[in-house]
Design a protein around this nucleic acid. Structure first.
Lengths: 339, 339
DNA sequence: CTGTTAGCGCATTCAG
DNA sequence: CTGAATGCGCTAACAG
């Protein structure tokens, strides 16, 4: 037997069979809880498994069953709380159902990430869930068509064949945010946009623009863009407030940018929320400790993760790929000191 | 051919061979960049691959080569910045070297996580890196002995056979923190400990206790424990400061707990750092936006991730398992407004 | 209830 | 330079 590079070889089903003095097939039956195995035989096999420290090789199993009980998950940055929460949520859901989650990060600089999703496929996952970030709808459609497994997209509301889309209701979120700002007396609202992923940003941007136009007297809101990070949010806010000194409220694409806005206001000697109100999106836990604490749109990451897993599971169990279904999720406004 | 549950079947090497009118082996040679393939043949095969959208099945390949070009990574919570940064760092390192990282979260409530590491193995990874969190040294030793692949542990300094340990120099970190506090005039230092993972905590705790005892006049420092979260840090700090009103500095097990300490001081009407100084561990980015900004011990997550990957790669390439090596990493103190 | 045969998709011998 | 056989570890289908 060729040895693994690492030295020690793990026992195989044959080793177990030999020790238990049965055929491989019987061992296989014990492993899969097949009913028709004599109790005594079963015991012998289980003992052998225990003694040898045997663990079935899931790759070999998947090769023949064409099912790995594994789903893939991908996002650009697991440390981003919304992505991370969703990832954790899917891990839990998967575990509960005897599934396993293979997680990988998408790299914008690399191959724009599509190759990473492909690699996930070659690893034999039964389905894929991911945050589309910088992918175009067309790319996703092509991927889904050739993937040979169910595909779930989280965070963008788009009707794509063979893809289930799970996303927050951006219109509702925008109405909540803008409505709240207007209710608290704000009249000139600026927006901090994410320049990194135009595709995903689009829905949120359009919704915000509509809500601002509808609910305030000034037409199109002033916009600055930057990467969705604290420092970039800070810089973008400074530019925004310098160009438009009448702005009395800033909406950040996400909480991180909004945190930057908080810092920018401090830099410029503006009081929050008296001079400028600040709102973010996501509801990350660190929003509670900023000064003042951040008002934000909370997405139900866990609920969405659960829905994503269920969609994948249903598709696998029914043997039918998903069909352009869109699952809409309701946002909530968490009001804190920054507004 | 049996169909996948999901319907569409992905093309195999045989399909490519048929289209290119060659044998499977020739396709295999093209895939592995074997030199002795006629240019014309190679072109035909490459075209067929392109047209069919063929991607090699890594499971089948791993089964015969006994190498998956995949490493496993596990930690309790990817959203924890230090874990997340390390994970990202390993992803990058892996990508650069043609490797792939399979990430999974350890679940304390489940099986205390060891089963999760086992599952990683059954997935066919060539090596495993993980944060030991709640694992005992003995458990890890057993796992490493039977894993059949190199094992790297990050975040605990322990000499375990067949395991490379990559960890921060806790003594040095403790000296930096306590030295700094003493230098700024603090005399009565309290500690916020992590009650969740006694094993990993131990090293940091012992180091801090020693440093405090050595550098201040009061002997053993007062300690409160809680989960490594903001609210738990807040509660623990309140208890600590109520029981010991003379405490003028609080060291948090990590930044999150230290943030809780900041809130607790605010709750109690204490000024930071005048009345009570606060220090954390990790150097997470949100530490920059607290009020006041958090002084913290910064670990070089990326560097450690790189070292972990390199250790795994070296072990695989040399065909020898690691042998209880301990790689020590130097901490740095990032001084900000909270001290 | 248990064993035998066949083959999942691929790479590694060994022949031509 | 290319093809045919063999087997990685496992399960499905069929015998008995």
């Amino acid at each position: 037997m060729r040895e693994r590079l690492s030295g020690i070889d793990r026992p195989t089903i044959v080793d177990v069979a030999k020790v238990a003095d049965v055929s491989r097939q019987t061992v296989s039956r014990v492993l899969s809880d097949h009913p028709r195995v004599a109790p005594a035989t079963r015991r012998r096999v289980e003992e052998a498994i225990e003694n040898l420290g045997y663990r079935p090789n899931r790759m070999a199993r998947a090769l023949v069953t064409r099912t790995s009980l594994t789903f893939g998950f991908a996002a650009v940055d697991m440390r981003n709380s919304h992505f991370g929460d969703t990832c954790s949520g899917m891990q839990s859901a998967a575990r509960e159902h005897g599934y396993y989650l293979v997680v990988t990060e998408l790299d914008f600089d690399d191959d724009r990430g599509m190759g990473t999703l492909e690699t996930l496929l070659t690893l034999g996952v039964d389905g894929v869930a991911f945050f589309p970030s910088f992918f175009a709808d067309k790319e996703i459609e092509l991927f889904a068509a050739t993937s040979g497994c169910p595909v779930v997209m989280i965070g963008r509301e788009a009707k794509i064949p063979n893809v289930v889309s799970i996303a927050m209701d951006e219109d509702r979120a925008a109405d909540l945010v803008v409505g709240h700002l207007v209710d608290t007396g704000k009249r000139r609202i600026g927006i901090l946009m994410n320049e990194m992923f135009p595709e995903v940003v689009h829905g949120r941007f359009v919704a915000l623009q509509r809500a601002v136009t509808e609910r305030t007297e000034v037409g199109n809101p002033p916009v600055e863009a930057g990467h969705p990070k604290i420092q970039q949010g800070r810089n973008a806010t400074k530019k925004l407030l310098t160009k438009h000194p009448d702005v009395d409220a800033v909406i950040g694409f996400n909480d991180t940018m909004a945190m930057g806005a908080l810092l920018a206001c401090h830099d410029l000697g503006l009081r929050v929320p008296e001079d400028v109100a600040v709102v973010g999106y996501d509801g990350i836990s660190f929003g509670a400790i900023t000064n003042p604490p951040l008002t934000t749109i909370v997405q139900d990451s866990i609920g969405m993760a659960d829905a994503a897993f269920k969609a994948l599971l249903a598709a696998v169990q029914n043997g039918t790929p998903p069909d352009g279904e869109v699952v809409s999720w309701q946002p909530e406004l968490l009001t804190r000191g920054s507004t």
